[in-house]
Nucleic acid binder design. Structure first.
Lengths: 215, 215, 215, 215
DNA sequence: GATGAATGAGCGTTCATTCAT
DNA sequence: TATGAATGAACGCTCATTCAT
C-alpha cells in the first residue's frame, strides 16, 4: 500500500479514514464476532460517528469484506515478497510470520467461520488466498519430489497437510490458554513444526508391514 | 446410546424430542451460523413449534451448548473406546473418523468461532475435549520418545502439531470446494497425513544447512 | 355458602376444586398482579395441572372474575349479616373487619386496578359492592341528618368520604411498611378512624375564620 | 418547569422528547395498565417509532419509573410551594389540587398497584412521596394537638386517616361513574371533606354510650 | 376427570441503516 | 463531510390455551 500514495490530499484522507475504521472493526470483530459486533461500538472504537462509517463503507458486511481484503492483500504481498531460499528457511519464516500475526490479530476463526457461511468472504479469503497457496505449494511439492528431495507422496495432499497444519496451529494459538505454546517464541514453534513436516516428507514411508496408504 | 434406554415412555420421548431439536439446530447452525440462525427456522426444521424448543432448552444458546456437549461426549466416548493398537493404526483410525465426521457435520468452524467468543462453549469444547486430548497425546508422545520410537522433540509441541494438523485438515474439508481432498477417501487421507506426521517424528532433525528448492 | 351444600358428591367436589383453585389464584395474583401471574404458577400453587384449571374456569380472566365475585359475595353477605346497632358500634365493627381482611388478603389495589381497566371486574366489584354500599350509606346519612344526629352535610359526599376513608386506609395497610398502623390492632384503628369520622359529622361546621397551627 | 430552560438546543430537544414520550406512556398506561400497554402503542401515541423510545428510556419499566418520578417530583414541589396558611385553607387547597389532578391523570390505581408489586415504584412513590407526607402531617398533627387546637388523638393515626381519606376519595373519583362527586367541583368536595376531617379532630371523643341510628 | 406437552401469537428490545442538520 | 437521532424489521422468548393420552 505504501508504494502507491494517492495523489491528492483528499484521496489520502479517505485512505487513512478507511484504515482507521477497518482497524476499529478488526478489534471489535475479534472481540465479539461479526454478528455481535455493533456499528455503534465500531464507530466508538474508530472515534467517528456511526454515519461516518457509511460514508466509507456501504454496509457492515462491507467492513468485514474490506478487512478480509486487506489481510488477503497483505498475505499475498508477503508471499510474493518472501525470498525463496531453501525450503527450511522459507517455511520457518512463513510459519513464524503466521504465528506472530495470529498472536496480534485474532481473526482466523472469524474469517473461517464467515468464509464458510458467506460467499463474498469465501471469495476474498479462500479463493484468493488459500487456493493460490495450495496451488503454489502443490507445485513446489511436485518439484521437490521430482528432484528427489522428498518422497513420492501425493503432492496435493502434502500441500494441504502443510497448510492445514499451519492453520490448525494458528487456531490453537488463537484459542489461547495454552502455556505450552504461548511461552514459546513464534520462531521456535515455527522451527519445530517445520522440522516435523519436512522430516515427515523425507525419509521412507512408514511401512507398512502394517497396512497403510502407501504400499 | 442405544444400550441405555430410559425406562419410562415419557423419558424416552423427552430424549427423542431433544435429539430431534438438536438435529435441526445442527443443520441450521451449520447453514447460517449461530447468530443468523433463528429459532423459527430451527423449529420449522425440527417440525415443532417455537414454544416446544423452550420446553426442552432454556434458550437458543442452550441449543448450541447442548450440541457442543453432545458432540464433545461422542468424541470423548470414541477416544475412550478406540482400541490402542500400534501408533500407526490408532492414528489412522482416529483421523479417518475425524474426517468422516467433518464431511457429515460441518460444525467445526462454528464451534471454534463460538468457543473463541463464548466462555460456555469454550468450557464444553476446548477444556473438556481439546485439553484432555492435548494432555493425553503429550503423555503418549513422551512415552514414544522415551522408548526411542521417536526423536527427542518437545512432546508438548509434537502433540499440538498433530492436533493442529488434524484440525486444520478438517477445516479445509469443511471449507469444501477442493477436489484434491474431496475425491480421496477419508481413510486414504488419514493414512497419508498420519504417514507424514509419524515419519516426521522419527528420523533425524532436519538441519538448516540443507538447501531446499534450489537443488 | 355453607348453608347450601350441593346435593351430589360430584357437585360438592366441583365446589371444593373451584375454591382450591381460586385460593391459589388469590395468592399468586396478590403476589404478582394479574398479568404477571402465570397459569402455571397458579396450577402449581393449587396443586393441580394447568389443564385442570380450564376444566373449572374458562380463562385466566375468569379466575379473576371468580375471585372478585367470591369476595363481593362475602362482602355483601357480611353487610347484610352485620347487626345494626348504634352507629359507633356498627362502624367500628365494619372497619375492624375491613382492616382484618386487608391484612390477610392483599387484593385491594389489584381489584381497584383491574376494576378501572376491565368492565367485567368493574361490574362485579364497583357496581355490585361499592355502589350499593354508597347508596346504603347515603340513605343512612340522610336518616341521621334528618334525625338531627348529624349536621346537615351533603349525605352523598358524607357517604363517599367514609367509604373513601375506609378504602384509603385499607390501601395504606396493603402497601405495608408502616409500623404506626401495623402495630396497632385492627379494632383500635377502627375505633380511632370511626371516632374521627363520626365526630366530624357532628358538631358545628368548621368556619374558615379560625386559624390553624399558628395560634 | 419553564423557568429553567436547558442551555443548548440539543438538551432542550431531549427534554421535550422525553416529555412527549412520557405523556404518551401516561395515556396508554392509564388506558390499559402497565402490562397490557405495548411499546408499539406508546410509540404510536407519542408519534415516534419504537426504537426512539429506547433512545430515551432504557426499558418499558423505565417509562413507568420516569412517570412516577415526574409525578412524585411535581407532588413534592407542590407541597413545598404551598403556602402554609391556616389549617382549613391549606387542607382545602391541597385536596382541591389532588382532586383536580385525579380528574386529569387517572394514574392513581395504576401507581398503587405497581407500587405494591414493584420495589422501584414503591421507592419512588411510597417512600419518597407518601412517607414524607405521613411524617410531615404527623408532626403537624402533634403541633395542633399540643396547642390545644385538636383533641389528643394519636397523631400518627390521625395523619394516616387524612391521607387515606384523600387517597380513597381520589380513587372513587378515578373509578368514575359517580355523578354525586363528578358534578361537584373539586373545590366544593375538598371543602366538605376537609370540614369533616377537621371537625372530627376537634370536639369531644365520641363515646360509645350515645346510641346511633335509633334516636 | 386430570394431565402437561404442544402451540403460536404477540411481546419487549436491538441495531443496521438513513438523512436532516 | 460528519453527525447521531430516528427508524422499523426482525429477533428471542413467554405463556394462555388446547387436546391427545
Amino acid at each position: 500500500m505504501a508504494e502507491n500514495q494517492p495523489a491528492t490530499r483528499r484521496e489520502r484522507r479517505i485512505v487513512v479514514r478507511k484504515a482507521q475504521i477497518l482497524d476499529a472493526a478488526a478489534t471489535i470483530f475479534s472481540e465479539k464476532g461479526f454478528e455481535r459486533a455493533t456499528t455503534r461500538e465500531i464507530a466508538a472504537a474508530a472515534d467517528v460517528s456511526e454515519g461516518t462509517i457509511y460514508n466509507y463503507f456501504g454496509s457492515k458486511r462491507d467492513l468485514l469484506l474490506g478487512l478480509v481484503q486487506t489481510i488477503a492483500d497483505e498475505t499475498i504481498q508477503e508471499l510474493n515478497d518472501s525470498p525463496l531460499g531453501n525450503v527450511e528457511d522459507t517455511m520457518r519464516r512463513a510459519l513464524t510470520h503466521r504465528f506472530q500475526q495470529t498472536r496480534e490479530r485474532r481473526l482466523l476463526t472469524l474469517f473461517l467461520h464467515e468464509a464458510r457461511l458467506h460467499p463474498d468472504v469465501y471469495r476474498h479469503y479462500v479463493q484468493e488466498v488459500l487456493e493460490p497457496l495450495k496451488q503454489g505449494l502443490e507445485a513446489y511439492m511436485r518439484v521437490l519430489i521430482e528432484s528427489g528431495a522428498m518422497r513420492p507422496l501425493n503432492p496435493a495432499i502434502a500441500a494441504r497437510t502443510l497448510i492445514g497444519m499451519s492453520m490448525g496451529f494458528a487456531i490453537l494459538f488463537e484459542l489461547g490458554n495454552d502455556p505450552a505454546i504461548e511461552e514459546v517464541s513464534s520462531a521456535e514453534l515455527a522451527a519445530a513444526v517445520s522440522d516435523i513436516f519436512l522430516n515427515g516428507m523425507r525419509g521412507e514411508a512408514v511401512s507398512g508391514q502394517r497396512d497403510g496408504g502407501a504400499r
